Computed example of a mutant assay.
Amino acid sequence: MATSQITASLRNLPAFERLQPSTLRFPAAGRVRIGTLTPNSFPSLVVKAATVVAPKHTTVRPLGDRVLVKIKDAEDTTEGGILLPLTAQSKPQGGEVVAVGEGKSVGKNKVNINVKTGAQVVYSKYAGTEVDFNGSKHLILKDDDIIGILETDEVKDLKPLSDRVLIKVADAEEKTAGGLFLTEATKEKPSIGTVIAVGPGPLDEEGNRKPLSIISGNTVLYSKYAGTDFKGKDKSNYIVLRASEVIAILS
């Protein structure tokens, strides 16, 4: 708790110059005489007011299997240069890892965090807790909420983590069986795609990685509303989902 001082000088206040000696009577104390008040009698008046100082934290250390990520700034313009209002700016889903926890224990084994400090990562859209730190927005989230590592601007270069797979979505049908062309709003969301990359696999009960049965190049059918969608620079649609959300391998 800090204090601030407010000093008010009474030397030039006319009201005190006109005060004259007087005698007051108090039943218990008899006569009490108040001496002459002069401008020098009150050289100054100090008033102390408490002021709350917000604590300044210099470090944030995530615990367990949590990770601290510095959030990338949201895009404020479209590719065509049109300025976006705040309500239209998409929430960032990527950032840089600035600190990691010590990991967690699974069975008898200690499992380290999947990512290292400095890695550029993509995470689940509504994961984690936002904090302001060192003048920037950060996110504290669990290691498992990180979808993958993305060191470039190309979604197809994403390296999925854990039991996740990266799929390039098949193009939606542009016309019905009867030959009618469909608008974007009426095109059915595809649930078929080609696997581009796979993660190292989930952990078993002893903390060991179990490889996925899905491999790059597989054509798969997946749950219709699963995963996290991305748009590539090539205008193609991509989706990252867990292997358990893949229904079947097509051939």
Results as ranks from 00 to 15, higher is better:
45 L>H: 09
45 L>M: 15
46 V>R: 11
46 V>H: 15
46 V>S: 10
47 V>A: 12
48 K>L: 06
49 A>Q: 15
49 A>K: 13
49 A>M: 07
49 A>S: 15
50 A>M: 12
50 A>I: 11
51 T>Q: 15
51 T>V: 09
51 T>R: 15
51 T>L: 11
52 V>R: 14
52 V>W: 13
52 V>L: 10
52 V>G: 07
52 V>E: 15
53 V>D: 07
53 V>F: 05
53 V>K: 08
54 A>M: 05
54 A>L: 08
54 A>Y: 09
54 A>D: 10
54 A>N: 02
55 P>I: 02
55 P>R: 11
55 P>E: 11
55 P>Y: 06
56 K>P: 00
56 K>A: 12
56 K>L: 04
57 H>A: 08
57 H>R: 13
57 H>M: 05
58 T>K: 07
58 T>W: 01
58 T>I: 01
58 T>G: 02
59 T>F: 05
59 T>A: 14
59 T>D: 14
59 T>M: 04
60 V>E: 05
60 V>M: 10
61 R>P: 00
61 R>Q: 11
62 P>F: 02
62 P>I: 02
62 P>K: 10
62 P>N: 04
63 L>R: 11
64 G>N: 14
64 G>I: 02
64 G>Y: 10
65 D>S: 11
65 D>G: 07
65 D>N: 13
65 D>Q: 10
66 R>E: 13
66 R>F: 08
66 R>P: 00
66 R>C: 03
67 V>R: 00
67 V>D: 01
67 V>S: 00
68 L>G: 03
69 V>H: 01
69 V>K: 00
71 I>V: 15
71 I>L: 07
72 K>H: 12
72 K>C: 06
72 K>M: 03
73 D>M: 06
73 D>W: 00
73 D>R: 09
74 A>F: 02
74 A>H: 06
74 A>P: 08
75 E>P: 01
75 E>I: 03
76 D>C: 03
76 D>T: 12
76 D>K: 08
78 T>H: 12
78 T>I: 05
79 E>A: 09
79 E>P: 00
80 G>R: 13
80 G>V: 02
80 G>Q: 14
80 G>C: 04
80 G>W: 12
80 G>K: 13
81 G>C: 01
81 G>F: 01
82 I>T: 08
82 I>Y: 13
83 L>Q: 12
83 L>V: 10
84 L>W: 03
84 L>K: 15
84 L>G: 05
85 P>L: 04
86 L>H: 04
86 L>M: 06
87 T>K: 14
87 T>Y: 12
88 A>S: 15
88 A>D: 13
89 Q>N: 03
89 Q>F: 00
89 Q>D: 04
90 S>C: 00
90 S>P: 01
90 S>L: 14
91 K>L: 05
91 K>R: 10
91 K>A: 14
91 K>F: 04
91 K>D: 11
91 K>P: 00
91 K>S: 08
92 P>N: 08
92 P>T: 05
92 P>Q: 03
94 G>Y: 03
95 G>T: 02
95 G>D: 11
95 G>K: 09
95 G>M: 07
